[in-house]
Nucleic acid binder design. Structure first.
Lengths: 256, 256
DNA sequence: ACAGCATATATGCATATCGCATCTATGTCA
DNA sequence: TGACATAGATGCGATATGCATATATGCTGT
């Protein structure tokens, strides 16, 4: 057991410790946020990555991140980074997990609160088009594991070439995919990845991309319609070379 | 939108920011952990609380916590606090959620990573008996909300008197109960709250205490036995004034 | 105009699960 | 020895799901 720099404080209660806490006495870790921004495009689950221009991990890919200001909430820092680096706001953002190993960043002690965000591919592409200054990409996520197991994942660019992730970002992304899969069945999270009006086939494609497996079409339709979370609009999709399907809307069901 | 102390850094990339980061230039928040240590005793879900001896929130009840050292992992800090304040180690501990509102602690900026831990009431009572120096209690948790909704909770001592929780600890505890309920169905978490050998009735009681509702006995038995996660020992419980039930053991099923 | 095609949408059926009720078994205790 | 409380097993209807089949409809090529 290594020496604890706060050993002299051990006999104190938390309260005494806090009351006598001298903020300059012990070094504090930096606190950052990392943003796992995912979308479904062309039937694939994808994540926004930036290629690092500087050492360390130069040339590797990382998810956007930033430090938490002393006067802003951690959630607020996540929304700020989303706005500053991706030019997006108002989309679904949820805290994922906090990564706090001392050596996860080679330069200094950084504790990172990871967030995952979801947005339609259309909205994301529009936001990215307005600022092509940074080297960024929408990479496809491949999970070597099935179900909701979790673990590190692989990412590939449009040509199928594998991309190297910086730091512990492969692990972070794995946790994000695991969380996303776990929430899919019991929360209306998939609608974050669809436009306001969508067909049941589009909804199923989103589910299949997230779960990385095919679903039974009829059971899927029955379950979705039975949940009462979608409402038929009466309108039909257009610009398809086959029979157009009916368009639905997500109607959040009141939690009685 | 309030002024961001790091506005001058905005045009920089994360990488440039990190590379040129001067650790003395911007104030860093303190990082702490809070430990939600829960157990099931007398068919009730209970949580370990300490009464605060100092201001602020003097006299109110709080969950044990402590600061994260500069050289220890956040998980390690949680295990250390568990060991130092509760004299327990080797039990189930899992990260819960990070609470990062700027005003959640009135003294200074503290970002807290909450953990939840589970242990049998027997083990916890034994650990507490060896150190009655601090004002602590095992309070019963009452959730005004049903299902897995979440929200603040109430705690009461053995006489049914409500206890006031300090800071945002009612919210933290609510998130812990919500997480515990959500995990119950799909993870073998309940066995953390039972001795090595237990009856199916004891297992059901743990589930009912966590969910705060009664379960169908036969359906519960069938589901548990069907999952193949328990193994009959052939032995029977003793010291009961009725027909003794068979004792079972938890046998972790191999994730194929 | 019309046949063919691809997909949408609806229906039927076997199976598995779950809630509920009923029945039997087995220990303690008066 | 019998009442009693709980353990443990069985049957049944309702519901969800996987799979197959049948029908509907817009588009396209001839």
């Amino acid at each position: 057991m290594k020496t604890n720099p706060r050993n002299p404080e051990v006999p104190q209660s938390e309260e005494a410790f806090l009351a006598g806490y001298d903020s300059s006495r012990f070094p504090r870790p930096s606190v950052a946020i990392d943003l796992v921004l995912m979308t479904v495009e062309d039937g694939e689950l994808r994540v926004l990555l930036l290629q690092r221009q500087e050492h360390p991990a130069r040339g590797k890919w990382a998810m956007p991140g930033g430090f938490v200001g002393i006067d802003e909430s951690v959630d607020g820092a996540a929304r700020r980074v989303l706005k500053e680096k991706v030019r997006l706001s108002g989309i679904f953002v949820e805290q994922l997990y906090t990564f706090g190993e001392p050596d996860r960043d080679p330069r200094t002690r950084v504790i990172s609160v990871a967030y995952f965000a979801l947005v339609t591919a259309h909205t994301l592409r529009a936001a990215l088009k307005s600022q092509a200054k940074e080297q960024l990409t929408l990479a496809t996520i491949h999970t070597p594991w099935a179900g909701e197991r979790g673990g590190a994942v692989e990412v590939r660019d449009g040509t199928g070439t594998g991309l190297q992730l910086a730091f512990d970002h492969a692990e972070i992304l794995g946790v994000a995919v695991k969380r996303l899969r776990g929430r899919l069945k019991y929360s209306p999270i998939a609608y974050q990845l669809l436009p306001d009006e969508f067909t049941l086939r589009m909804l199923q494609t989103v589910h299949e991309a997230i779960l990385s497996r095919e679903l039974n079409k009829d059971a899927f339709r029955r379950r979705v319609l039975g949940l009462g979370e979608v409402k038929a609009t009466g309108r039909l999709e257009s610009d398809v070379d086959h029979r157009p399907a009916e368009l639905y809307r997500h109607c959040p069901v009141t939690n009685e």
